[in-house]
């Protein structure tokens, strides 16, 4: 091999090594953006917001044009159904909790009344297809901090991953990095909800006891274990249950209540109000 060729190969290996090292360094859960990264995001935020808004208008306009309004109406009704399902799950959660604890508790207002919530618009999404993150137009300047839960009336959306001054990146529960402590509402069976891949589709609920009476149609809510998410936030409905490959436990597939394809605004839980 000639010297020039050896040099090229060596340069390639060094470049690969440097990029791989940067990948490793940024693979963990960074809670803040790097200065350059944060600056670029803040500068791009208004452009992304405008582009997303334009896309939304075109998408909705085309939908109305091609279906003479039917598709838009169906989507609106589907959204209402999901919201009501989330509401039912929320109310059931209170009922089950009350029964289980056998204590007389004053019926609390809706779950979101217990939290201080901040509304934020979705301005961008992960440009790729492997992960599920969204960027919202609220950041450190608005009091947003990493690990804050993010939700919608229908159910849990995810949590704040990292923040720049005026934007925040939200890790969706469908992302393969995501792990949420969950519990099957009807049977109180605990498990861990993990994203599969991409920002769409199902979740996998693992570590369910082999003999747990979990079945299709059951509702999954957050367990509150781990301290990241308050308990009782609706997550989704079980669509299938099967034994895990090891045979020791079983796993369930969960369809999220939130339609992640059409999330336009989210609520960031700044804090749980005292007594909540």
């Amino acid at each position: 091999m000639r010297r020039a060729q050896v040099g090229k190969v060596l340069a390639g290996v060094i470049l690969f090594g440097i990029i791989f090292a940067v990948m490793r360094l940024t693979a963990g859960e960074r809670t803040a953006t790097m200065p350059l990264e944060g600056g670029i995001r803040d500068v791009l935020a208004p452009v992304q917001a405008a582009a997303t808004q334009a896309g939304r208008i075109v998408y909705e306009g085309l939908g109305t044009l091609f279906s003479l309004g039917r598709a838009a109406r169906v989507e609106q009704l589907e959204k209402q159904v999901r919201q009501l399902e989330g509401k039912v799950a929320e109310l059931n959660e209170y009922k089950v909790e009350n029964e289980r604890l056998r204590r007389l508790l004053a019926f609390r207002e809706e779950t979101r009344d217990r939290y201080e919530l901040l509304a934020a618009d979705v301005i961008a999404r992960d440009p790729g297809n492997w992960f599920g993150t969204i960027t919202v137009d609220r950041g450190a300047a608005d009091g947003v901090r990493p690990y804050m839960p993010v939700l919608l009336p229908e159910g849990l959306v995810g949590r704040v991953l990292r923040v720049s001054q005026h934007t925040a990146e939200v890790l969706l529960i469908t992302d393969p990095h995501s792990g949420v402590g969950g519990v099957v509402q009807e049977t109180r069976t605990p498990g861990v909800l993990r994203g599969i891949v991409n920002s769409y589709g199902r979740l996998r609920m693992t570590y369910l006891a082999k003999d747990a009476p979990v079945k299709k149609g059951h509702t999954v809510v957050t367990s509150g274990l781990g301290g990241m998410f308050p308990g009782g936030i609706p997550v989704g409905k079980i669509t299938a249950v099967r034994p895990e490959p090891t045979g020791v436990t079983k796993e369930a597939f969960v369809e999220p209540l939130v339609n992640f394809g059409h999330v336009e605004e989210v609520l960031i839980m700044l804090r749980v109000t005292p007594g909540g």
Partner: peptide, 15 residues
Amino acid sequence: AQDILTGSYIGLNAL
């Protein structure tokens, strides 16, 4: 450019 907007694994798409 994709990596900077993604935020995780900076260098993955580049590589």
